[in-house]
């Protein structure tokens, strides 16, 4: 049991290194950070990712919550005002552009979605319509709630 968990830990590490190679290239080519900065940035982000995934696997014995929530929460806790490592974590994470992981993500997602291109083409117009509706709905409802609260609390 323990050996299996260990294998998965190293496997995850290998996969993160594989993904990281592309992300570091993106950070250098697309966002003009140096190699050292990029390595520092990925050391923090990849480390948090690995820790989050590992914690999630452990916690899933007790409660099933999305892995990405643990990853995000690990990052939040390490960078929050109470964290003793916050300066280092924030400084190194700042060496990695926000959208630097997105290009690799897009490339893999594209290859993965390659099996459904015809479907996407067929649904294209509908998906644009839905996107417009989703943005509109979110904006208007958010403005409505904010407006009500501002009036109720007498702020405006």
């Amino acid at each position: 049991m323990k050996a299996k968990a260990e294998i998965r830990f190293f496997e995850q590490m290998g996969l993160l290194a594989l993904a990281g190679t592309i992300m570091i290239l993106t950070n250098m080519i697309g966002y003009k950070y140096t190699l050292v900065q990029s390595l520092q940035g990925y050391a923090v982000l990849g480390g948090i990712a690995l820790a989050g995934v590992t914690i999630s696997r452990f916690m899933s014995r007790f409660i099933k919550l999305p892995t990405m929530m643990y990853v995000s929460l690990t990052g939040l806790l390490l960078a929050c005002p109470l964290s003793p490592f916050k300066e280092q974590v924030i400084a190194w994470a700042n060496n990695f552009a926000f959208l630097a992981p997105a290009t690799a993500l897009g490339a893999f997602a594209g290859i993965s979605l390659g099996k459904d291109m015809k479907n996407f083409g067929r649904m294209g117009v509908k998906l644009i319509a839905i996107t417009v509706l989703v943005i509109t709905g979110t904006f208007i409802m958010s403005a409505f709630v904010a407006d009500q609260v501002l009036k109720y609390t007498g702020s405006v």
Binding site: Q12, I48, I90, S112
Partner: peptide, 29 residues
Amino acid sequence: ESGAAGAMVLVCLAPFMAKMGVGAGANLA
């Protein structure tokens, strides 16, 4: 191969979420 790429999407998401988490933590105050 298309399927293998799908598995990598999840791997790529983790550092992305880590970046968002750090951003959230830094702004918590």
